[in-house]
Simulated assay, not measured.
Amino acid sequence: MLVVDHYPKGRKKNMMSVLGNFMFQAPASFVVSTMSVVSLVSLASGGWSEIRGKHMNYSKFWNVNTTGQKHFNLSTKLGMLLLYTPAFLASAASFCFFPNQGVRSTILHSSLTFHFFKRILEVLFVHKYSGYMTLDTAIPICLSYFLTTTTMIYAQHLTNGLQQPPINLLYPGIVLFLLGMSGNFYHHYLLSKLRKKGEREYKIPKGGMFEFVICPHYLFEIIEFYGICFTSQTLYALCFSTGTALYLIGRSYATRNWYLSKFEDFPKHVKAIIPFVF
Rank of each mutant, 00 (worst) to 15 (best):
H6Q: 11
H6V: 11
Y7S: 04
K12G: 13
S17K: 15
M23S: 03
A26R: 10
A28C: 07
A28N: 14
F30I: 12
V31H: 00
T34V: 12
S36W: 04
S42L: 12
G47E: 08
W48Q: 06
W48K: 09
G53E: 13
G53I: 14
K54V: 08
Y58R: 10
K60I: 15
N63Q: 10
N65T: 05
H71D: 11
N73E: 14
G79T: 04
M80H: 03
Y84R: 00
T85M: 12
F88M: 12
F97Y: 14
N100V: 06
G102H: 13
F116A: 01
K118M: 10
I120R: 09
I120G: 03
I120S: 05
L121D: 09
F125T: 10
V126K: 01
S130C: 11
S130F: 15
G131M: 06
D136N: 13
Y145V: 01
I153R: 03
Y154P: 00
A155P: 02
Q156D: 13
L162T: 12
Q163C: 00
N168Y: 02
L179T: 15
M181Q: 13
N184T: 04
H188I: 04
H188C: 04
Y189I: 08
K197G: 00
E199F: 11
E199W: 11
K203G: 02
P205G: 08
M209H: 08
E211P: 00
V213S: 01
V213P: 04
P216I: 07
E224T: 12
G227A: 00
C229M: 15
F230T: 01
T231F: 00
L235G: 04
S241D: 08
T242W: 06
G243V: 05
L246Q: 06
Y253D: 11
A254C: 07
P275H: 12
F278E: 10
